[in-house]
C-alpha cells in the first residue's frame, strides 16, 4: 500500500454556440441626447462579464470611450430577442449583433456630423475620445456630444442601429450524416499531476497546467479570471460533483447543496494558465467562446493521471475513492 503519483494529458476542441436549430441574437443601439450610447439586449450577464464586453465592443465600433456606453439587459420580455447565455455563445453571438447595430448607429452619427461640418460623411473619422474629425484636416471637428444634440433637437434624426446575428441552421447530409455543428472552435490542453492513495482510493491533484486557445481575448483580465475558475471547476467535476449517492444506497445520496461536494479554498491544486490568441474568422474582433470549454480538459487529464498512477481506467464521473478501490480490486482479481 502506497501513495502513487501519476501524470495525465488531455486536449479538447470546443464549439462556440450551436446552430442545430439556427442560433440568433439581436441587439439594438441608440444614443442619448448627450451622445452616450445604450446597448439593449436580452442576453443575460451571469457574472462572466458580458455587459463589460458588450460595452467594449459597442465603444470600439462607434469610436467612443467604453465609459460612454451603457448596456441594458434588464428584461427578456421587452428587449430584442436572444437565444440565451449558454453554449459559450454570449460574446460571439451577442458581440456580432452589437457590432452590426453599432455600425448602423455610427453611420447615422457620421451623417449628422457631415451635415454640421458641411462635408461628406465618408470623409469623417472618430478619434476614440468622443470627437469626429475630417480625415486629413483634424482641426475641423465636432464632438459626439454636439452631434447627438443636433440629431435630437435640430435635425430630427435617431442615432441608432439594429443588429441581428444568425448562423443558419446546419442540416445533416442524407448519405453521411455529416453536418456543421459550429463555425468557431476554442481549444485547450491540460496536464494534471495527481497522487493516488491505493489503500483509501483518495486522489489529490498536485498541479494542473492548462493552455487555452480562445481567439482574441477582448478583456484579458476577465478571460484569465474565467479560466482560473474554470480550471478549478474541471477538477471539481472530475473528483467531487454529483447529485447521485457516492455509495450504492440512495440513502447515502446528497439531499441538498450542503452535501454537494466541491473542493474548498484549502483543496486547490497548483494551477497554471497560458492563453493563446488565434483570432477567429467570424467572431467579434476575433473572439471565441472560452466559457464552458475551460472546465473540460481537466476531467480526462485527471482520469489519465489516475490511470498513470495506479493502472485503472475510471470511466464514470466523479472519480471517487470507492470507484478507484473497486477498480483496483477487479484488477487484482484478474
Amino acid at each position: 500500500m502506497a501513495i502513487r503519483r501519476g501524470r495525465g494529458v488531455a486536449a479538447i476542441n470546443y464549439p462556440t454556440g450551436m446552430n442545430l436549430g439556427g442560433d440568433p441574437t439581436q441587439a439594438l443601439v441608440h444614443s442619448t441626447p448627450t451622445g452616450n450610447f445604450m446597448v439593449t439586449l436580452s442576453s443575460v450577464d451571469l457574472g462572466q462579464g458580458m455587459k463589460q464586453i458588450m460595452a467594449q465592443i459597442c465603444a470600439e465600433t462607434i469610436g467612443v470611450p467604453t465609459d460612454r456606453v451603457v448596456v441594458d439587459t434588464a428584461d427578456t420580455d421587452t428587449g430584442p430577442h436572444c437565444m440565451g447565455t449558454f453554449a459559450s455563445r454570449g460574446t460571439h453571438r451577442a458581440g456580432n449583433a452589437v457590432i452590426q447595430a453599432a455600425r448602423e448607429a455610427r453611420q447615422v452619427m457620421l451623417e449628422v456630423a457631415a451635415e454640421e461640418l458641411e462635408v461628406n460623411a465618408s470623409d469623417l473619422e472618430t478619434d476614440g475620445q468622443g470627437n469626429i474629425l475630417v480625415k486629413g484636416a483634424p482641426q475641423k471637428s465636432i464632438s459626439i456630444f454636439d452631434v447627438a444634440l443636433s440629431a435630437h433637437f435640430k435635425r430630427g434624426r435617431s442615432i441608432s442601429g439594429r443588429g441581428m446575428f444568425l448562423i443558419p441552421r446546419s442540416y445533416p447530409e442524407k448519405e453521411t450524416g455529416a453536418m456543421k455543428p459550429s463555425t468557431c472552435y476554442a481549444h485547450a490542453c491540460t496536464v494534471a499531476e495527481v497522487e493516488v492513495d491505493d489503500e483509501t482510493g483518495e486522489v489529490t491533484v498536485l498541479t494542473v497546467k492548462n493552455v487555452f486557445e480562445i481567439g482574441r481575448a477582448l478583456n484579458p483580465k476577465m478571460v484569465e479570471q474565467q479560466l482560473v475558475g474554470g480550471s478549478w471547476m474541471g477538477i471539481s467535476h472530475a473528483l467531487y460533483e454529483t447529485t447521485e449517492p457516492y455509495y450504492p444506497n440512495r440513502d447515502h445520496g446528497g439531499t441538498d447543496f450542503n452535501q454537494y461536494l466541491m473542493p474548498g479554498p484549502g483543496d486547490l491544486a497548483e494551477t497554471e494558465i497560458i492563453v493563446l490568441e488565434r483570432p477567429s474568422a467570424d467572431g467579434p474582433y476575433g473572439a471565441k467562446g472560452p466559457g464552458e470549454m475551460c472546465a473540460n480538459p481537466q476531467i480526462p487529464a485527471v482520469a489519465n493521471a489516475v490511470f498513470d498512477a495506479v493502472g485503472v481506467r475510471i470511466d464514470t464521473l466523479p472519480i471517487t475513492p470507492e470507484r478507484i478501490l473497486r477498480a483496483l480490486k477487479a484488477q487484482a482479481a484478474n
Partner: peptide, 16 residues
C-alpha cells in the same frame, strides 16, 4: 484559507 473555509464560491476557484 482557514478564515474563508466557511464560505462557498462557485465561480472563481477561490485563488483570486
Amino acid at each position: 484559507i482557514e478564515a474563508l473555509s466557511g464560505n462557498i464560491c462557485r465561480c472563481t476557484g477561490y485563488e483570486p
